[in-house]
Design a protein around this nucleic acid. Structure first.
Lengths: 142, 142
DNA sequence: TCTTGGATTATAATGATTCTTATCCAAGAA
DNA sequence: TTCTTGGATAAGAATCATTATAATCCAAGA
C-alpha cells in the first residue's frame, strides 16, 4: 500500500497542484486520523511539524483540496442560521455550491433500515434529512 | 383556519412563553412566507413593522422558537468547516444538540426514487446525505 | 543569474452570532 | 392606586470563524 506521502504526491500531480511541504503536511494530518476534522484542529496538528505555518494556509488548502476532491467537506452548506415554519415532515435538497435549499419529499428513505443502522439510543423520531448535490444552474456552470 | 396571529398566541400559550408583540411579529414574519429564512432576513422584515426591534431579540427568539418546536432549524449542525479524508461512499448521522458527527452506511436510501424526486438537472452523482437526530447521550439528558 | 508566478505568511478586516448590561414593562402584592 | 419583581427587550461591545490584503518567499524556467 502506498504511504500517505506517496499518495498525496500522486493525487496532487493528477490535479495539477504543486506538492509543497505545507500541503503535504496538511493532507497527511487529515488522512492520518479517521474522522472529522475542523480547520482549527488541523492547524494545531500541523503546527507540531511545521510551526511556521499560518492558519490562512490551512484554510486555503483545505478549500483547495475539497474543490479538487482530495478531501470531502462535511455539512457543506451555508453557515448562517436558517429557520422555516413548515413543520410537516419533509427533507431538504441543498446545493453545495450556491447553498440554495429546497424541500423534497421523503419517500426515498427506508426508515426501518435507517433506524436499524443507527447506533442504539440515537433518537430519530423526527429525523431531518439533507441531501447535498449540485443544483441545475451550478452543475451547468462547471 | 386560524390566523397566524391566533396560531401564535395559541402555540406560545402551550409552551409557556409570553406572547409579546415582538415575538408575534417575528413568528409571523417567518410563517408568512414559505421557504427558508436567515436571521438577517427576518430582522429586515420585522423592522418594517417594528423599527425599534433589535437583532439580538430576533436571534434570541428564533432560537427560543426552535427549542420549543414552533419553528424548525435548517441544517442544524456545527457551523465550522469540517473535512474528512474518507472518500468511500458513506453518509453522516449528526446530533442536533452536541453537533457530533458519525458515519453511517447508505443502505437506507433508495437512490432511484431520490433522483426521480429531485428536480430535473440536480446533480446527485455523489450525494452526501446527513441525517439529523439526537445522539444517545443528548436524548437521555432531555 | 534573472525573472516570473504561484505559494505562503502575517495581519487586518469582515460578518454572523452571542454576551453584557441597563432599561422597560406587565402582573401581582400591598 | 402605587410598589415590587422578574422576564423581555434594546443597545452595543465582544467573540469567533473565516476571508481578504499585501508583502515576502521560493522554485522552475529563460
Amino acid at each position: 500500500m502506498p504511504s500517505a506521502h506517496e499518495q498525496f504526491r500522486d493525487l496532487a500531480w493528477k490535479c495539477g497542484l504543486a506538492a509543497t511541504h505545507q500541503r503535504q503536511v496538511i493532507y497527511e494530518a487529515v488522512v492520518a486520523i479517521p474522522g472529522h476534522h475542523s480547520a482549527e484542529a488541523v492547524y494545531a496538528e500541523v503546527r507540531r511539524r511545521t510551526p511556521s505555518i499560518s492558519l490562512a494556509t490551512v484554510y486555503n488548502n483545505l478549500r483547495l483540496f475539497v474543490e479538487h476532491g482530495l478531501l470531502r467537506e462535511v455539512s457543506p452548506h451555508a453557515s448562517t442560521l436558517l429557520v422555516e415554519g413548515n413543520l410537516e415532515p419533509h427533507h431538504h435538497l441543498v446545493c453545495t455550491r450556491c447553498k440554495a435549499v429546497q424541500d423534497i419529499e421523503g419517500d426515498f428513505i427506508n426508515y426501518k433500515k435507517l433506524s436499524r443502522q443507527a447506533p442504539r439510543g440515537f433518537d430519530l423520531t423526527q429525523p431531518l434529512i439533507e441531501v447535498f448535490g449540485l443544483c441545475r444552474r451550478c452543475s451547468a456552470k462547471t
